[in-house]
Every structure is written in structure tokens, then in C-alpha cells.
Design a protein around this nucleic acid. Structure first.
Length: 558
RNA sequence: GCGCCUGUAGCUCAGGGGAUAGAGCAUCGGACUUCUAAUCCGAGUGCCGCAGGUUCGAUUCCUGCCAGGCGCGCCA
């Protein structure tokens, strides 16, 4: 524990002991010790930390808040970290601390290096994060890309928060759409020799299908001698495999890899669908109606029951998905997190119902819904038409704006928010682009450290330098910002809000740029220079740490 | 009709039971003989969608309404 968390806890304990004194002296009557909140005031003039304890206790203690605050302050024990205490506003107790706790933050950062900010909150709980899971019949779109960026960062955040995280991509390679895909590819293959060969009405029109057809023709020319059903089936299997490899490559280029690509096909082959039907039947959640078999999901709050076996005897996609989630749970994961696109929110209730029907707690499954992405270019929304095969893919996006910018833009908004992705701004390598603003801070630091080296100045350890020379406003603000990381990281992980990290990186860079302008490093007297070098190096570590969580590179030169 | 998300500065969006609501962009004005000016410093803007409720205190929580987006298949 470090930084803010530690300080808050320490102050909370101090306040608590003051309350205990008052209770012992019978100046205060309380049924129970309240939870004591410390917050960092918006206004610097309100101290380093403030507590509303007197406001909260005013009513149960039957005293007016300012009087109560007076009593508490009078009973506060002496403590070396406290510089002074004031009562302000309606009854806030404002604490002003000595700078030592900030200097301690630098020691912590230096010691923990790139692990700085991590904690063991998750207690090693096994979490399975499933995201992207785009159908393997087309290129990945921008919502898939957003899911990739958010899922990847969330996985890193959860790992940093002490969870044992695995990531998975579910490949829908067994559904009707793969059939359509197989027929589309077969048609394109035929068209290479016979342009009049009919293309399926519901087929996938994209140029990538034709490209696959050409490769297929080169690799397996004898395919055309087989009968139609065999050709289509081969096209389906071979084509889907190619598509999956393509998606894998695109995601890898985007910096996103998965621990496992889970094939729906494997579930069918293993009889997993029959298994869950049996299990649901045993547990009394299945019934027959209108020639179909239904899952009684309404028992667990779903709008309506769901068909599991259709009239024609085949399964629905829900059946496979239930089997997949059951598989995850059987593998020992106690928390499943799914990232879905905005068109799947109706899905939450039925899947949570399924998890419960299978005998697991409701909160074993958590589904996050990402909102839509609108692409803007030169202030105009980019029109996309899936039917006409006109859309911007993840690949296009990386080519246009670069991987770092793309990741940052996807991560900078709350997952709940619709995202306006400004391609023009993202592609711009200028001061308007927040990605470069952050990276530039890192490059500047590297430059300072490099020049120090060239001048024969070695970077000392924090304990070897006079940190108490760091007293400028910009220096202290900078350290405070770094002290915030552990708490921000925990919030981002537990609230599933990776955009907090994007914001944090921007704030930290901003504090550094301000420090850079106001406080020179290398031109100062040796002692101050050494202290500032330590500070600068700590900022480098924290920036790298944050950018690492975001999956964005930290260039040494720009 | 039902469900999910959103509504905060001119634009894009953060924030969040408390003290004077923030950032970036855009606009205007300053700062480079000194570690990278992709930077910094300064200036202005807000019925926090509307109406009730809970509270010592609501922009934040609750309810209703309005507006925008999306979804409600024996499709995946």
C-alpha cells in the first residue's frame, strides 16, 4: 500500500482515535464507529485531505457539525505527518500534511518499478475475460476494435489488481453464417473460371472472399472436381480457418493476443450441447412446447423463455453459448466477464439465467456492453454500408491513424458512452493529439536522462539524494499525481473503467510538462539536480507503467 | 409497448452525496541565447435535459417525463 490509500487510512485511524477519546470522555455518544471518509479536496486551499466525518456524525451525535469538528480536532493526537488541521465550510476537517509522505512515494516507485500501483485486491480469483469474438465471416469492424482495446487493457488492469486473468476469443465457426460463407467462397471460386456463375443472394459480398477464392484455387485446384456439397463444406472449413488466422494477425498487429481461441465446433463435437440440455432438464428448467424444447429462463427474470432445440431438431445459438459458458465455469473460473457489442444487451438476462440454472451464482457472469463507435473524418460522419462491403476495418484504422492513436482513442471514453472517433485528429501528429502529448512527455524525460548520462551525471537512488529539496508547486503536484496511480488503477479495474487510465496518463503528462517548463534539471546545483533526476526517473516509470496498461508504446525520441 | 445506454461549456467528453462543476479542441493574448515549443502561462463561457422526492447538503441517489442511439427471432 502506498500513496493516497496509505495516507487516507492513517488519517482515518487518527480520526478514529480522536472519536474514541471523545466517547471515553463521554463528550460524544455513538452507537457504532462510523466509516471515516477522507477525500482529496478539489481546492488546494482546502488542504491535502479533508474529512466530512463531523457532517456525517452531526445527526447521530446530536451536535452541530462545526462544534463537533472542533471537538474532534481538539482530540486529535499529535502526529508527525500532520502539518496543520483546519475546520472549514459547513464542518469539514482539512488536513495539511508535511511533504514526507510524498517523498516516500518516490521511494516506493523506485522500489516497485513497473509493478508500481499493483495490489492484491483480487486475491488471485480466477477471471475469464471474453472479448471481440467477432464472427469469422468478415473483417473486424470498429466496434470489434474498441472491444479489443478495452478488453486487453481491462485484462491488464485486473491482473494488476491481483486477479488471475485469462483471455478468450470465442469463434462462432459452427453456425448458419459459416454455411453462407462457405457458399459465398465456393461461388467466388467458380467465378474465377465462369464469371456468370451465380452468387448466393444472402452471400458475403466483400472483396476478401474473392481474394480467398484465388488463394484457394492456387492451393487446391482439384477441388473443382468434387461435388457441390463437398466443395461448399471444404470452402466453409478452409475459409473459416483462414478468416480466423486473419483476425488473429490483425489483432496481434493491434497488440492484442488471447490465451485461447475457443472453437464453437469443438463444443458440438464434444457433445457439450447435449450435456447442458441434460443438465437443464435434470434441474427442471426445460419443457416442450409447439414441437420445440424451451429453457425456462423467466424463472430467473428473463423476459421470455428461450428455445434450445428448434422444431427441426437443431439447436439455437443460445444453446451453444450456454454450453460455452458452462465449459468456462467447469474449468474453474469463478468470474466470467463478457464484453459485448451494443446490439447484444438483450442477451444479458438469458445468459445470467442460464448460469443460475446450471447451479452457479448470478454474479459469476458479468456482461459489459460497449456502445457504438461513429467515425468522423473532417467533421463528417463516415458512412458505412455492410451490405455493399464498404466499411472501415481494424486494419484500415491502424493504417490511417496508427496503433497507438487508435488504442488511445478507443480507451479514452467510458465504455458506456457512444464514441465519436475523430480520424482526422487521431491521424494528426500534432499538439492536438493527446496520444502524442503523453508520449512526448516520455520522450522528453528520456532526453534528460540521456543527456545526464552524457555529462557523466549518474542517476542516484532516491535514498541517496535530498528529496526535501523538492518543494516547488510543480514538483509536489507531480508527485501527488503519481501517488494517485494505485487508487486509480484499482478503481479502473474494479469498476471496469479502463478510460480512467487514459485520463490519468494525460493528467500525469500534463503535470510533467508543467514541471519541465518551470523546473530545470541538469542546469541546477548538484544536490537539487540529483533530486530532480530521481523525480524525473520516477515519472518515466509511472508513464511507462500507465502506457503499458493502455497497450501504447513509450517512445524515447520523437 | 418493453428493455439497455446517453443527455454537463460553441464541439468532443471527464467527474461526482458536499465547499467556487473540470479537461481537450475551438477563440483571444503572452513565453524559445538554457534539458525537444509535439511544450508552457493567462483570458471567457455553464437552468450539469425537465419536474418532483430523499438529505443538513443533489449536478451526483430515487421516481416520473422529454430527447437521441440501440435492442426486443425456433437468425448469429
Amino acid at each position: 500500500m502506498s500513496g493516497f490509500t496509505k495516507q487516507k487510512q492513517q488519517l482515518a485511524e487518527i480520526i478514529e482515535s480522536a472519536l474514541q477519546v471523545l466517547i471515553d470522555q463521554k463528550q460524544l455518544e455513538l452507537d457504532s464507529m462510523p466509516e471515516i471518509n477522507l477525500e482529496v479536496p478539489r481546492e488546494k486551499a482546502h488542504g491535502d485531505f479533508a474529512s466530512n466525518v463531523a457532517l456525517v456524525l452531526a445527526k447521530p451525535a446530536k451536535k452541530n457539525p462545526r462544534q463537533l469538528a472542533e471537538l474532534i480536532v481538539a482530540s486529535l493526537p499529535e502526529h508527525p505527518v500532520i502539518d496543520k488541521v483546519e475546520i472549514a465550510g459547513p464542518g469539514f476537517i482539512n488536513f495539511y500534511l508535511t511533504n514526507q509522505w510524498l517523498y516516500d512515494v518516490l521511494l516506493t516507485i523506485e522500489q516497485e518499478q513497473l509493478a508500481y500501483g499493483a495490489n492484491s485486491f483480487g486475491n488471485g480469483e480466477r477471471v475469464l475475460l471474453e472479448f471481440v469474438s467477432a464472427n469469422p465471416v468478415g473483417p473486424m469492424n470498429v466496434v470489434n476494435a474498441r472491444a479489443a482495446a478495452i478488453g486487453d487493457t481491462l485484462a491488464k488492469l485486473l491482473a494488476a489488481a491481483g486477479y488471475s486473468v485469462a483471455t478468450e476469443y470465442y469463434v462462432n465457426d459452427a453456425g448458419v453464417q459459416t454455411e453462407v460463407f462457405g457458399r459465398s467462397l465456393e461461388a467466388r471460386l467458380q467465378q474465377l473460371a465462369n464469371p456468370d456463375y451465380p452468387f448466393p443472394e444472402d452471400g458475403y459480398p466483400g472483396a476478401y472472399v474473392s481474394e480467398l477464392a484465388e488463394r484457394l484455387k492456387a492451393e487446391k485446384p482439384e477441388l473443382l472436381n468434387q461435388d457441390y456439397a463437398e466443395r461448399v463444406e471444404f470452402c466453409r472449413i478452409w475459409g473459416i480457418d483462414q478468416m480466423v488466422e486473419w483476425q488473429k494477425q490483425d489483432l496481434a498487429d493491434f497488440g492484442v493476443t488471447f490465451d485461447r481461441w475457443f472453437r464453437e465446433r469443438d463444443l458440438h463435437e464434444a457433445g457439450a450441447l447435449e450435456d447442458i440440455i441434460e443438465r437443464l432438464t435434470e434441474r427442471g428448467y426445460m419443457y416442450e412446447k409447439d414441437g420445440a424444447f424451451w429453457f425456462r429462463s423467466t424463472v430467473f427474470g428473463d423476459d421470455k423463455d428461450r428455445v434450445i432445440i428448434k422444431q427441426d431438431g437443431t439447436y439455437t445459438y443460445v444453446t451453444a453459448d450456454i454450453a460455452y459458458h458452462y465449459d468456462k465455469l467447469k474449468r474453474g473460473f469463478t468470474k466470467l466477464i463478457d464484453l459485448f457489442g451494443p446490439d447484444h444487451h438483450g442477451y444479458i438476462a438469458r445468459m445470467k439465467a442460464a448460469v443460475q440454472a446450471l447451479g452457479y451464482p448470478e454474479d459469476a457472469l458479468e456482461i459489459m456492453i460497449l456502445q457504438y463507435v461513429a467515425l468522423l473524418r473532417d467533421g463528417e460522419q463516415v458512412k458505412m454500408s455492410k451490405r455493399a462491403g464498404e466499411f472501415i476495418t481494424l486494419q484500415d484504422l491502424m493504417e490511417e491513424v496508427g496503433r497507438d492513436a487508435a488504442r488511445y482513442f478507443f480507451l479514452m471514453r467510458s465504455p458506456d458512452s457512444h464514441l465519436d472517433f475523430d480520424l482526422t485528429l487521431a491521424a494528426e501528429q500534432s499538439n492536438e493529439n493527446p496520444v502524442y502529448y503523453i508520449q512526448y512527455a516520455h520522450a522528453r524525460i528520456c532526453s534528460i536522462l540521456q543527456q545526464a548520462k552524457e555529462q557523466g551525471v549518474t542517476l542516484k537512488q532516491a535514498k541517496e539524494v535530498s528529496l526535501d529539496l523538492l518543494v516547488q508547486e510543480q514538483e509536489l503536484d507531480l508527485i501527488k499525481k503519481m501517488a494517485e496511480l494505485p487508487e486509480e488503477l484499482l478503481m479502473a479495474a474494479t469498476q471496469r473503467e479502463p478510460h480512467r487510465m487514459a485520463r490519468y496518463a494525460l493528467d500525469l503528462a500534463s503535470q510533467f510538462h508543467s514541471f519541465y517548463t518551470h523546473c530545470h534539471v541538469l542546469s541546477e546545483a548538484d544536490e537539487l539536480r540529483d533530486a530532480r533526476l530521481v523525480l524525473t526517473n520516477c515519472v518515466k516509470i509511472v508513464l511507462q507503467r500507465t502506457l503499458g496498461l493502455l497497450g501504447i508504446s513509450a517512445p524515447e525520441r520523437m
